[in-house]
């Protein structure tokens, strides 16, 4: 407990905490992001309905407008979709899928990027040249295109049925593959800086394996930038997932994310049932905006030089 108190005190006195408490917009963003995580991962407990429990669905509840509109019912705060599913609940479950995919994709991209960055920086020479060249070429293509290509290729390899079962993993990998470059560049740069420092040379002299040294000394130094990239990437990954799902090459309707919800709702927009698509859309926009604001602030707070 004492240790915790100590950490708390130290955190409270830090510059980052100070800049956090000074910025109302950032505090609001953090609160909203937290709320999304709570709502998403607490969905089975907190959501008013379980939209995937087919037994509880009633088609006569379909197309109910939001509670405050004429014809709305209080038990469906944000209305229902064509099958009578409660929009608020689908948003909560959908956010869970969106956040999970986004989060895992970022972790995948981060792991891959850090590994390749360490490798490139440490090995140098042809390995370095090859990895960084691939990074350059990939960077000149939009991430969404890479993700779609990976998705299409796996579809070709697996066949449609298999693909639909593995969709969530395919999505994580394809989004992850499209965002590794930034991590690799950051880590590689740091490796090149650290590589020639004396303690690394010394460690090598006493026979420690090179990659281990690199890992131990480089990682603490890149933690800040990597965290910033990861935060901003989370927003990007959520957008990418939503976009892919919206385009119908992401998650199937049985496993809806926010993007899938917006996609299925879009067809009702022209007939006037706007809430089916607008609310998940607003949820997505607010989530991404909050995470983006957090990422922006984090970048400034961790790196005052860039301001």
């Amino acid at each position: 407990m004492n240790l915790l108190a100590e950490y708390w005190r130290r955190g409270r006195d830090s510059d980052i905490w100070y800049s956090f408490t000074r910025n109302k917009l950032v505090m609001a963003s953090a609160a909203i992001t937290l709320l999304f995580f709570l709502g998403a991962y607490g969905a089975p407990l907190l959501a008013p309905h379980n939209p995937f429990d087919l037994a509880s669905l009633n088609l006569s509840d379909g197309f109910k407008p939001p509670a405050w509109e004429e014809g709305g019912e209080p038990k469906f705060l944000l209305g229902t979709d064509d099958q009578g599913r409660d929009i608020l609940s689908t948003i909560m479950y959908g956010s869970r899928t969106s956040l999970s995919v986004g989060f895992l994709a970022v972790v995948f991209a981060m792991t891959l990027g850090i590994a390749l960055g360490l490798l490139a920086g440490y090995m140098g020479g042809a390995v370095d040249a090859f990895i960084m060249r691939v990074a350059d070429v990939q960077l000149s293509f939009p991430a969404i295109l890479i993700a779609m290509l990976v998705d299409g290729v796996t579809r070709g390899l697996l066949g449609a049925d298999q693909h639909s079962k593995a969709a969530i993993y395919v999505l994580i990998v394809s989004i992850g593959l499209s965002y590794w470059v930034q991590y690799a560049r950051t880590v590689r740069g740091q490796v090149l800086v650290e590589k020639n420092k004396e303690y690394v040379q010394a460690a090598r002299v006493i026979g420690l394996p090179g990659p281990l040294i690199a890992l131990r000394h480089v990682l603490p130094n890149v933690l800040g930038p990597v965290l910033v990239i990861a935060t901003i990437n989370l927003a990007l990954a959520v957008i990418t997932e939503a976009t892919l799902s919206f385009l119908g090459v992401g998650l199937p309707p049985t496993q809806p994310s926010l993007g899938t919800l917006i996609n299925t709702g879009q067809q009702f927009l022209l007939s006037g049932e706007w809430w089916i698509t607008i609310f998940p859309g607003a949820a997505l926009a607010i989530l991404v905006l909050s995470v983006n604001l957090l990422g922006d602030w984090l970048r400034d707070a961790l790196n005052p030089k860039l301001r």
Binding site: I262, L269, W274, G281, L284, A285
Partner: peptide
């Protein structure tokens, strides 16, 4: 900033609406 955070397809849907 809002424009950057809004996914393209969402902007499209809003404009259509």
């Amino acid at each position: 900033l809002i424009g950057i955070s809004l996914p393209t397809f969402l902007i499209g849907i809003l404009l259509i609406y």
